[in-house]
Write a protein that binds this DNA or RNA. Structure first.
Length: 273
DNA sequence: AGCCAGGGTCTGC
DNA sequence: GCAGACCATGGC
């Protein structure tokens, strides 16, 4: 990648194997929306405006090179070799169309607490509605960052809330789960800081202490928010994809990168039901 | 109108 | 240990 500054915007050329739009809207992140400049939203609790005018060019608005390298390279997983991952997938016949469908898809590394809450909200819910509930939660309890953009509320600010105060979220039965997560994180019963260095099964068990968090939600939080690339969340769509494409299970060679494969499967089966 | 959603809990066997 | 009811809400 090469860098150019222009009018305060960071232009990155020679970008490989990255499809920004597919990555932002493939059901792993619920904090961005299309805007005049491209896509606007909040990542790592910072406002961000980005666009991809052509496949090999990214524009990060009002961003320095240092901020890009420290924050957004890990956020978008830009230092991982996804071409190699897709080649591994293509060694299995049924996964060839899966790898070929969106080769620029990347698994993001988002802020952990936010990711946990997002996937608590996701249970038995549709993707557009998840986005709405997350947005209302940020507007209700987050800090205003810029324009209509708000940070994600801290565990403490959420833990101070009553169930009635969360009614405007229209989160349904999930509101009480959010409160339990906030309380357990606030008082230290759940230690989010320890999760990245735990074995994935132990980390899943730790998160399942929270009411409303089961294996699927825990796996999503660990994959998208705590760096566990082998976490393999199974929802109804992945269930269908596995039945159709991998009836004998995930090949052992792909298990260490199972979460990444899972994202390709999810995106593929949703567009090819 | 009715079905379903990036599930999990609780109850009853 | 496992099936089935139930949970709130709204997009399609």
């Amino acid at each position: 990648m090469t860098f150019t500054m222009q009018d305060g915007n960071l232009i990155i050329n020679n970008v490989k194997d990255f499809d920004l739009e597919q990555t932002l809207f493939c059901g792993q992140c619920f904090r961005f929306s299309p805007c005049d400049e491209g896509f606007c939203g909040v990542g790592m609790n910072r406002p961000l405006t980005i666009s991809q005018p052509d496949p090999t060019t990214l524009i990060f608005h009002a961003t320095t090179k240092q901020e890009f390298l420290e924050l957004w390279v890990p956020y978008f997983d830009l230092d991982r070799n996804y071409a190699a991952l897709c080649d591994e997938m293509r060694k299995f016949d049924t996964l060839v169309p899966v790898a070929d469908f969106t080769p620029g898809l990347r698994v993001m590394n988002q802020e952990g607490w936010e990711t946990l809450c997002t996937f608590i909200i996701s249970q038995n819910n549709h993707i557009p509605r998840i986005t709405g509930i997350v947005q209302r939660l940020c507007e209700l309890l987050g800090e205003r960052l810029q324009g209509e953009l708000y940070s994600f509320p801290t565990p403490q600010s959420l833990a101070r809330c009553s169930l009635e105060e969360l009614a405007p979220l229209r989160a349904g039965f999930r509101a009480k789960y959010l409160l339990d997560a906030a309380q357990q994180v606030s008082d230290g019963r759940v230690d989010l800081g320890a999760l990245p260095n735990m074995e994935t099964p132990d980390a899943i068990a730790h998160l399942c202490q929270i009411k409303g968090v089961g294996i699927k939600v825990a796996s999503c939080a660990l994959l998208y928010g705590f760096g566990h690339a082998n976490a393999f969340p199974v929802d109804v769509w992945i269930g269908r994809a596995m039945e159709k494409l991998l009836p004998d299970g995930l090949p052992s060679e792909l298990v260490p990168m199972g979460g990444l494969v899972q994202q390709y499967l999810f995106n593929y089966i949703r567009h090819n039901p």
